[in-house]
Design a protein around this nucleic acid. Structure first.
Length: 268
DNA sequence: ATGGCCTGTATGACAGGA
C-alpha cells in the first residue's frame, strides 16, 4: 500500500501536474495541502475520473487540505484540530481508509518569528501534539502526513546556519517535532534513509531546485504498529522539475499489508 | 546584503508563502 503527501500549492492551477503524477505514481492514498480553493471549487470530477474518491476541507485563497483514495471513498473522521474553536483555517482533515486512520495536516508557516503568526504556529503544534497523543492511545494504525513546515534536524536544511531564526527551524518547533516522535511516531522517510540528505521543498527563487538548495518539510509519521510494516519511502523529486510545478515534491511510503497475528513468523 | 518567484484575488497590486 502506497501512501503519499503532496503540497500542491493551488489545486486548480496545479491540476495537470497532480493528474499526471497520480497516473504515474498510482498512490493508494494521497494527502494534499494548500488547495487554495473554497470547497465549491475543488475539482472533484477530474479527481474521480482519475479513479480516486476524495474528501476535502477548503477555504478561499489560502490553506485547504484533502485526502484521496484510489478506488474507494475515504470515511471522514474529523475536520479541523480540536482545542481552538475560533480557528477557521482549513489545515487538518482525517479519514479512515482500508483499516488505517489518515491524518492530513498543513502546519502554519509561522513567519515572521517572533510574532503573532509564530504564536499561532506554536499553539497549532501544541494542539497537534495533544491530538496525536489521543490517536496513539486508540492503538489503531495511524499515518499523520503533511506539510509540517519544520526541518527536524540540520540534515534537513541546505544551509542550516541561515535558518536558525526562521519559524521553520527555531528550537521550539524542532523540539515540538521531537516531542511528537518521542510519543512513539516514526518519521518514515528518515527511518528508511538515515543520514541521507533528502529534501521535499525547493524555493522558486534563486534557481533553488537546480542547485538542490532545498528543505525537508513534508513528513509521514507512523504509529508504532505501522512502523514494522514500512518497506520503502521516497521523494518524487522529478515532479518538482515539471512545467508549472509546485514548490514541493510528493513524498511517499510503501506499507506491507496487515497480516493476522497467527500468520506472522515467530522471532528467531 | 539584496532581490530574485509563485499563487489566488470583487486583480493590473496585494498578501502569503518558506
Amino acid at each position: 500500500m502506497k501512501i503519499a503527501t503532496f503540497n500542491v500549492n493551488g489545486i486548480n492551477g496545479r491540476l495537470p501536474v497532480l493528474l499526471r503524477w497520480l497516473e504515474e505514481a498510482r498512490p493508494d492514498v494521497v494527502c494534499l495541502q494548500e488547495l487554495k480553493a473554497p470547497d465549491a471549487r475543488f475539482p472533484v470530477r477530474a479527481i474521480e475520473q482519475a479513479g480516486y474518491g476524495a474528501i476535502w476541507y477548503g477555504q478561499k485563497s489560502w490553506n485547504g487540505v484533502a485526502i484521496l483514495a484510489r478506488g474507494r471513498e475515504p470515511i471522514e473522521t474529523r475536520r479541523g484540530l480540536p482545542g481552538e474553536a475560533e480557528d477557521t483555517q482549513a489545515r487538518y482533515i482525517e479519514a479512515a481508509v482500508e483499516g488505517l486512520l489518515i491524518g492530513c495536516l498543513y502546519l502554519p508557516n509561522g513567519n515572521p518569528a517572533p510574532g503573532l503568526r509564530y504564536d499561532y504556529k506554536r499553539r497549532w503544534f501544541a494542539r497537534l501534539l495533544a491530538h496525536a497523543a489521543e490517536l496513539r492511545a486508540l492503538d489503531v494504525p495511524v499515518v499523520l502526513a503533511g506539510d509540517y513546515n519544520v526541518m527536524p534536524t540540520e540534515l534537513d536544511v541546505h544551509k542550516p546556519e541561515r535558518w536558525v531564526d526562521d519559524a521553520l527551524f527555531r528550537p521550539e518547533v524542532r523540539e515540538a517535532f521531537h516531542t511528537l516522535t518521542a510519543q512513539g511516531w516514526t518519521d518514515a522517510l528518515r527511518a528508511r534513509h538515515p543520514g541521507e540528505r533528502l529534501y521535499t521543498f525547493w524555493d522558486y527563487l534563486r534557481r533553488a531546485f537546480a542547485r538542490d538548495a532545498g528543505l525537508r518539510l513534508d513528513h509521514l509519521l507512523l504509529s508504532p504498529t505501522l512502523a514494522p510494516r514500512l518497506t520503502a519511502a521516497g521523494v518524487d523529486r522529478a515532479v518538482r522539475g515539471w512545467d508549472k510545478a509546485s514548490d514541493h515534491a510528493p513524498v511517499w511510503i510503501e506499507l506491507d499489508p496487515a497480516r493476522p497475528a497467527w500468520r506472522r513468523k515467530p522471532k528467531a
